[in-house]
Design a binder for these strands. Structure first.
Lengths: 353, 353
DNA sequence: TTGTAAGCGTTATCAT
DNA sequence: ATGATAACGCTTACAA
């Protein structure tokens, strides 16, 4: 670093005023304390000298960093980069910077990340890793750290959140399948510790009823986590427990991919034998084989709104908490079709396991 | 924020020593200045009191932040999250934090990002957005900011870099196609301003020769950027200029997906009529239709090595620059097959454009 | 309206 | 080996 930075002191010296005057003139919140003409002059001078305030120094004094932490459970899941872009779009406008932490679905890493970020004096956090009863979120709230949840919410509404209308989204998928003529629809649910897992499952059950379809308890299999492998395992169980399903509503796209695998392993073709729907409409879902019918969520908007809420809460910590529920829409592709015929009950290949 | 943090002063008071002694005892680099037993005592006390050093305050004093910036061109491209994970794995061990900036392929945004990050006093930067003659990289170097390039390098070797052996990677693809019996192989090159674009193209030409195949200049089309749409356009041009190609080596996976689109639009099937290979072996490449034969690069290692190099350079700015070239391997999937037959020259559908 | 001075939490330098 | 002091660059009571 050979280039020395201009500092407040330099600008003040050049203008023949005291540094604090420059500080006041440059800070929008204190500008009114200084005469308009001086303010203008100093601002121009500062720019001309290439003055850039030092966020570290100002952060030390004000205990604010214009930085927020973002916890994502799996940055390799293409839905999160899109949400991140939305977050950064909102933050950038406000001059904030995001520090992203990928927890790789590990609560311990989430904990470490928050500690590390708190040490760096983040002004708030956007959390995409929450479970319904989340000790980490409670911890942040206890610290008085502004937190906004995204995609997944916690119980109790103690924390603002931007989520999908999961139930309505799933209902779209079920209605689509019902309209195609499916009568026996299964669900691969995500774990109920996630709000998404719970709400999508509840939405699935409700939607069956709304479409006049019988609820079949054993036509729901629960994964132990989000992911392709977990989806495949659960799907294999579902096919064993309910071999007559002609369609499967998966709790998300990765799980849907797992269904593709399990169906293939069972000698079943999608959508010929079994239709499959996903959730999130992740990037490249249109490229899968077959292209995945999925519930599209407004990733970018979700990120933008979460950041907006967080900035508002940082601005005014007393602001009321709110939950914003975003509407999804169904994108129909090649993984869903009319049921070919009522499949004969076949001896489950899973028996070999 | 109601919980007050323990500070150096508190630990010192509790121990009955001066804060600077505590500082010395806690900092590995200065620990030798203090008697071993006092050091041990203070360390234990600090931990017991839950002392966490304040990186902001220490950063102000030392002008180091234990933070590095990471510039990625497109975080929605699934190869970058994998590289990021590698980077963070290395950084975390050293107690460093990454601040990620997605430039969305816009040099102006890259510039802004670096300014913003420099203001935050990053200790160095990992740049995945470089072009061969990159003013931004030159700017950083001029500032004395340690920089390591990843995936793409700049000309002149003034900057350490971790890249793939692009030519060797492409040669793998060409050799595979040649072994399948292809004699007329085309290439969709990325723009030559990127080292990857240039080296892969040169590697392609060299590999043709190495396999005893004739170099056909018009069997190379150049995209104006990385991306599916750009790939599709270039592929359409290639099919027009060289309608007899039976295989296409794409400069990366997104471009390969564009080839899928262009082939389909031209009424050609992959791999039946034309085989296609990609580069990077991005996540989900195995899920495409058809599954994409691609050159797999060690994403995670690439990130780890880049971070390692950067940390070394931060530690010792005089360290010699080095370029690490990583070897790739070919993953053969369904997008490549033997050429069916010598395709008859057909009137290009592109004539309609 | 502007200047003065103290202080944010650390660490480097100097003194003991 | 440890203590005292100043300084990093900025903001903000308080004084003028």
């Amino acid at each position: 670093m050979n280039a020395k930075r201009t500092k407040l002191h330099d600008v003040a010296a050049a203008a023949g005023v005291h540094p604090s005057t420059v500080s006041r003139a440059l800070n929008p919140r204190t500008r009114h304390l200084v005469s308009a003409e001086v303010a203008g002059r100093l601002q121009r001078l500062a720019r001309r000298l290439g003055y850039r305030p030092d966020p570290v120094a100002s952060g030390l004094r004000t205990r604010r960093s214009a930085t927020v932490g973002v916890l994502v459970p799996d940055i390799a899941n293409p839905m999160f980069p899109l949400i991140l872009r939305g977050i950064e779009a909102s933050l950038a406008r406000a001059g904030f910077t995001a520090i992203i932490a990928d927890t790789e679905n590990d609560p311990a890493r989430a904990r470490e990340a928050i500690e590390r970020l708190a040490a760096r004096r983040i002004d708030g956090a956007i959390v995409a890793t929450a479970v319904r009863r989340d000790p980490l979120v409670a911890h942040c709230l206890g610290l008085g750290l502004p937190v906004v949840l995204v995609n997944r919410s916690v119980e109790g509404g103690a924390c603002s959140a931007v989520v999908n209308d999961d139930a309505a989204g799933i209902a779209l998928a079920v209605a689509h399948l019902a309209a195609l003529g499916h009568r026996s629809i299964g669900h691969i649910a995500a774990p109920s510790r996630f709000s998404t897992g719970q709400h999508r499952r509840a939405g699935f059950v409700a939607a069956l009823k709304a479409n006049g379809l019988p609820a079949v308890p054993h036509a729901i299999a629960v994964t132990d986590r989000f992911g392709i492998a977990a989806g495949a395992q659960a799907c294999a169980r579902l096919l064993e427990a309910a071999p007559d399903v002609t369609a499967i509503v998966a709790a998300n796209d990765l799980i849907a991919l797992g269904c593709y695998d399990a169906l293939k392993a069972a000698g079943l073709a999608c959508p010929r034998d079994v239709s499959v729907t996903g959730f999130n409409d992740m990037a490249f879902a249109d490229r899968f084989d077959p292209p995945l019918t999925s519930v599209r969520i407004p990733h970018h908007l979700m990120g933008m709104e979460a950041a907006r809420l967080l900035l508002a809460e940082i601005e005014n910590p007393a602001a009321p908490k709110q939950e914003i529920k975003l509407q999804a829409r169904l994108v129909v592709r090649g993984s869903t079709a009319r049921p070919r015929r009522r499949r004969q009950v076949r001896l489950s290949t899973a028996a070999a396991r």
